[in-house]
Design a binder for these strands. Sequence first.
DNA 1: ACCGGCATGTAACGGGTTACATGATTTT
DNA 2: AAAATCATGTAACCCGTTACATGCCGGT
Lengths: 184, 184
Amino acid sequence: MDAKILCLGILSKGEATGYEIKKACENGPYAYIHPIGYGSIYPALGHLLEEGCVSCREVLSDSGPGKKVYRITQSGQDMLSSALEAPCAPDRFRSEKLMVLLLGHMVSQERVSQILESYLEEHEKALHMIDNAPEGDIPPGRQFVRAFGRTIHQAAADFLRTRGEDFCRELAVAREENQQGNRS
Amino acid sequence: MDAKILCLGILSKGEATGYEIKKACENGPYAYIHPIGYGSIYPALGHLLEEGCVSCREVLSDSGPGKKVYRITQSGQDMLSSALEAPCAPDRFRSEKLMVLLLGHMVSQERVSQILESYLEEHEKALHMIDNAPEGDIPPGRQFVRAFGRTIHQAAADFLRTRGEDFCRELAVAREENQQGNRS
DNA sequence: ACCGGCATGTAACGGGTTACATGATTTT
DNA sequence: AAAATCATGTAACCCGTTACATGCCGGT
């Protein structure tokens, strides 16, 4: 699932500029698919244009380079369909925060508390964004993925809220034992 | 959080070979941190050895190359500690399955059902692995991350189980409406 | 006898991230 | 008047993925 297919997926719900595609990758359901930057998006759109998978309409502004609005073509639709039919790569998740928590006994109490708090805030922020997103007439897929994301963020936030402090206490005990172990 | 720090983190709980490090990245709590392959691990261990962050003990077997057991050194501990103190990059999650579900109206009913089923199976398998893992005397960090992972997998599995079929039905309706829209 | 798991590495390739370069428009 | 956002693009670099190459050991 490379940048090209992701762009096609986003364009399948309506025309957009490269900039808007980037925004779509960060907010909304596409945030769960694959985060990419401009360095991937603009070249991808260039290739798609060459291959005839998208068309481009340049909107001139008064003086200066205009913005380029891309629209998916029929062959783009076809390419997207066949990509969606191909076997899926396994999900990938990576988290430096979990790494720090995993080795919590090696870092300071403050560091762990800080990670725990910011992690909780992130999940709560994500929940707010999902809940405040416009309801409108969105296709079932978007609704499903949105609800899926909400469930995960909710579960994570609940876990952190209910278990975070206990974890800090257990870590404190473990650190004390370590100290005694080192001394003896 | 590159491969080197990940290796150090795994080695911090005891000596291991490159092969065992790979295994640790796939199973257990480290699966949530960062999945890497041999192509990253062996060079990383080489660099760490050069830098004096790990020591290496070669265990000869009868004829043939022996296995290399790596152990973290004090300067390795120090490097790990300072890496854990550095600001965390945001979590990253990518899922091709969610991409297909998101655009469910573009693919066949069978495809969606298949994705939904295999996704549920994956989460259930992960739950089993967590529940069957040895309890033993594991540090609080490992226990916390393990419980966190369990919570997430459980929430995902529950969601897929309770909402999967409804989603399929909604998609069927959406497809019919599309058909009618295209015809008119 | 064969297959799967254990075990180590190298080299090329590809893709994404980051940094750079630029400028208009809108908000504060 | 400054800061934030909108907007496009290029180039280098890093890192991880994949494919290749090799061989032992234990179980069926």
